[in-house]
Design a protein around this nucleic acid. Sequence first.
DNA 1: GCGGTAAAGCGAAACATTTCGCTTTACAAG
DNA 2: CTTGTAAAGCGAAATGTTTCGCTTTACCGC
Lengths: 335, 335
Amino acid sequence: MAVTIKDIAKKTGLGLATISKYINGGNVRENNRVLIESAIDELDFTVNAFAQGLKSNRSKTIGVVIPELNNIFIATIISAVEEILRQNGYSVIVCDCHTDEKLECEAVQFLIHKMVDGIINMSVCKDGKHLYPAVTKNIPVILIDRTIPELSGKVNAVLIDNAGAAEAATTYLLNQGHRNIGILVGPRDVYTSERRLLGYRYAFDSFHLSPPEDLIVCSDYTVQGGYECMRSWLSEHPETTATFITNYEMTLGAMIAVNELGIRVPDQVSVIGFDNLGLSQVIRPKLTIIEQPLEDIAKHTAGIMLDKLSEKSPSNPKTITLGTTLLVGESVKRI
Amino acid sequence: MAVTIKDIAKKTGLGLATISKYINGGNVRENNRVLIESAIDELDFTVNAFAQGLKSNRSKTIGVVIPELNNIFIATIISAVEEILRQNGYSVIVCDCHTDEKLECEAVQFLIHKMVDGIINMSVCKDGKHLYPAVTKNIPVILIDRTIPELSGKVNAVLIDNAGAAEAATTYLLNQGHRNIGILVGPRDVYTSERRLLGYRYAFDSFHLSPPEDLIVCSDYTVQGGYECMRSWLSEHPETTATFITNYEMTLGAMIAVNELGIRVPDQVSVIGFDNLGLSQVIRPKLTIIEQPLEDIAKHTAGIMLDKLSEKSPSNPKTITLGTTLLVGESVKRI
DNA sequence: GCGGTAAAGCGAAACATTTCGCTTTACAAG
DNA sequence: CTTGTAAAGCGAAATGTTTCGCTTTACCGC
């Protein structure tokens, strides 16, 4: 039925090995190259990826396991990673585990069955057990955004300097004269959340001040969470002069709350948000925000993966930590 | 190196065909089943997907080609489709073509090389040429959200009743006494855009009225577009009493503009938005919106795909059109 | 205990490619 | 014209599964 390299060999009078060599980018005599190419065109040949995989044990496919596809921060990174990988001939299988550890664990096994050559994971599970099957089989793994101490030395990671980002934002607010600075972080046990809170405390430490513990709030990284928190800050803690919201969704929620209540930013309250995505650019006053280098995260992730897949002997895992930028807008007032 | 069914056959004393049968869910004598299962456990056997594919010519993989992964409407649908397909053993390869026809065309060929069993596509290309290679090879195709007349009868489609949705929204506004009703649609040549504008006109027709052509605006389905358009309506067309914004991003942009200008909704202007996603639920006043049945779109898409893949002889392509719901909130005033 | 029948089991061939270990070819220098 | 060498070409074996067309087994009712 289908056209195979045998047919190409027959048509050109060349051997199987030569056709195979041509396909895999090997050198072939010029006239034979022409011959092969015209035969391929004429018979409409395409190589059979199954047979290739069977021999080479490589699928040219990468598995991606994420907590929610339906999240612009995650989708933006994955979209950029996918683009680079596809340009290099790799397809990307996406598994959305809906922030469920069991589904995440199953997703990893599913991907291994599907013979993926590597796995990229923004992890839900804290101890990394779900990745053991991949590590055991020497499948390269790259953690993004969140690291897992138990897996240190076994897997790669591309992170951002969360503590540094939060410290920079908080320091900026302190330098502008603020002291009653609220911070809104995500769930207590999420890596980025912990680190961002830590950075906030560092900044106060540097100023030899204690942070206002009343104004430290853990929420859940959702719009709803940001909305509610901002309302309660404004009503229950009117002493709050500045707020630092540590992710995109919560920043939006907080700005909606502010708008609804008719509170003027930065006159009545200063705001530093997180992530320079879609809406951040439209909101007025122009937000002062921490910008994560999403494009760089994607580039490094794809780059490390391609490196690991092309190297003959396995090298040591890499961890890359990228810096963030404080984009100064008009949402912080000097007091 | 790897454990194969031969090893299982050897260990259990059974034949190759029996092991294969067991793996594929065939009947096996109870004691043999136990024997096979313990051998599989002991040797840590997993079937080799390449060899399976080579014989069966099926990858149990579906390709998805979309304009932007980084779009909550699209990501929500894909996430739900992926979940259902994965539960059925299918993996999903995502190709984000960044609203570029050339990339879209390449993505389809890429997926065919990757031996996908089916393709799901929210199409950028208007004439469907990019899908010919798939149609020719009898690979099932499902279009979502946007149809392509040229491909009618050759591919499946899951759509929503765009005209009906727009007609319902417009009729509602007319019934509330509005006449100067603005509509903001997407790019002129996008299917959903055309249909939604058509529905708007139908509604005016039913009332034996002509729509206010000044207030019909084409934008680009982005937050920025919604923001700018709402500002210009409010300043250049103060006669506007109601607006119908026909997608999620533009709805957000419009609401930001309204908030910034301190315009009261619905007292000064009534608004009907589109898509009951994330932010729509947080914005006050509670928006009156057209809700698309995202979950149903996903269910039907995955369902049709699984049907097509399991049927022995190819049946005629299906087109499903789903209805929308007008969720009445507090953003429309009776005048 | 026997015969009949449905279920279960079997081995070999086939799927399309890459790789191994050679042999052949081409071409330049002497 | 000969020789040496690097480049190119070659066929067979191997990869791990499913399918085909049978044969064997198990079990029921008589």
